[in-house]
C-alpha cells in the first residue's frame, strides 16, 4: 500500500464525496417534501387518491434503483427536459426515495395516539388543522430514525449513479482505478469516506432527535415535578 498515492488522490475523492452528499441530502429533503404530501393524502386525503399513492409505492419498491436511474437518464430528455447530470440524478433518487418515505411518514402519522385526535376534534379543530398542529409535530420525532436510515440508503444508492457517469465518489474511484490499476488504495479510501459520511449524518440526526424534537424531556432542564402541598 502506498500512502503517498492515497494522499495524492484524496482531494479528488473528497470533491466527489461532496457531490455524493449533495445528491443524497437534496434527494432526501425533496423526498420528504413529496413524501409528506403523499403520506398525508394517504392518511387523510380523499379515498380515490389512495390507490395512486399505493401504486407508486409498489412500483418504486418493486424495481431496482439502477433501472429507475437509467429510466430518468433516457426518458427525461425525451419529454423535452434538458437537465444536467446532477439534476437528473437528484430527480431519480428523489423519485426512488419518495416511495420509501411515504411509508415511513404514513406509519409515523398513524402511530400517534387516538386520544390526541379526539382531543383535537373535541375543541373543534378540523382534521387538516389537527394534522398540521398536533399530529405532524409529534410524528416528526418518530420519523427521524427511519429517515436517517433512508439517508444512509440514499448515500449507498447514489453510488449507482456512476452508471450514468455522474462524477460522485464511486465514479471518481472507478476513474482512478481505470487509469492507475491501484484498486486496493482506492477501495480502502472509498470505504472510509462512505463510512464517515453515513456515520456523521447519523450522529447529526441522533442529535436532532434528542435535542430539537424531543418534547418529552427537552426544553426544560428540571424534570422534578413540584407537588402541591397537602
Amino acid at each position: 500500500m502506498d500512502l503517498n498515492f492515497m494522499i495524492q488522490i484524496l482531494p479528488r475523492l473528497l470533491r466527489a464525496s461532496l457531490t455524493t452528499i449533495q445528491v443524497s441530502l437534496l434527494s432526501l429533503l425533496l423526498g420528504t417534501l413529496f413524501g409528506l404530501l403523499m403520506g398525508m393524502i394517504r392518511v387523510l386525503g380523499p379515498r380515490f387518491l389512495h390507490p395512486f399513492v399505493n401504486a407508486y409505492v409498489t412500483f418504486v419498491r418493486g424495481t431496482p434503483v439502477a433501472v429507475q436511474i437509467y429510466a430518468a437518464f433516457f426518458l427525461l430528455p425525451r419529454i423535452g427536459l434538458n437537465w444536467s447530470l446532477f439534476e437528473i440524478s437528484v430527480f431519480a433518487l428523489t423519485f426512488n426515495s419518495v416511495g420509501y418515505q411515504i411509508e415511513i411518514i404514513r406509519a409515523a402519522l398513524q402511530s400517534i395516539d387516538k386520544g390526541q385526535h379526539e382531543a383535537a376534534a373535541a375543541i373543534g379543530l378540523g382534521k387538516w388543522k389537527a394534522m398540521w398542529l398536533i399530529t405532524l409535530p409529534q410524528a416528526a420525532q418518530r420519523m427521524i430514525p427511519p429517515l436517517t436510515n433512508e439517508l444512509a440508503n440514499l448515500i449507498k444508492a447514489s453510488s449507482v449513479l456512476s452508471i450514468i457517469a455522474l462524477y460522485e465518489l464511486t465514479r471518481a474511484g472507478e476513474a482512478i482505478i481505470a487509469s492507475t490499476f491501484r484498486y486496493a488504495e482506492v477501495l480502502i479510501l472509498m470505504s472510509i469516506l462512505y463510512f464517515l459520511m453515513i456515520q456523521s449524518l447519523t450522529e447529526g440526526s441522533n442529535y436532532l432527535e434528542k435535542n430539537v424534537f424531543n418534547f418529552r424531556t427537552s426544553r426544560i432542564k428540571t424534570r422534578k415535578i413540584k407537588q402541591p402541598a397537602g
Binding site: 390526541q116 379526539e118 382531543a119 383535537a120 373535541a122 375543541i123 373543534g124 398536533i134
Partner: peptide
C-alpha cells in the same frame, strides 16, 4: 363541536 367541552379519562393533553 367547539361548543361542547370534553374531558377524558386519559387527559389527552397535546404531548408536544
Amino acid at each position: 363541536r367547539q361548543h361542547i367541552g370534553m374531558v377524558f379519562q386519559s387527559f389527552n393533553l397535546f404531548a408536544h
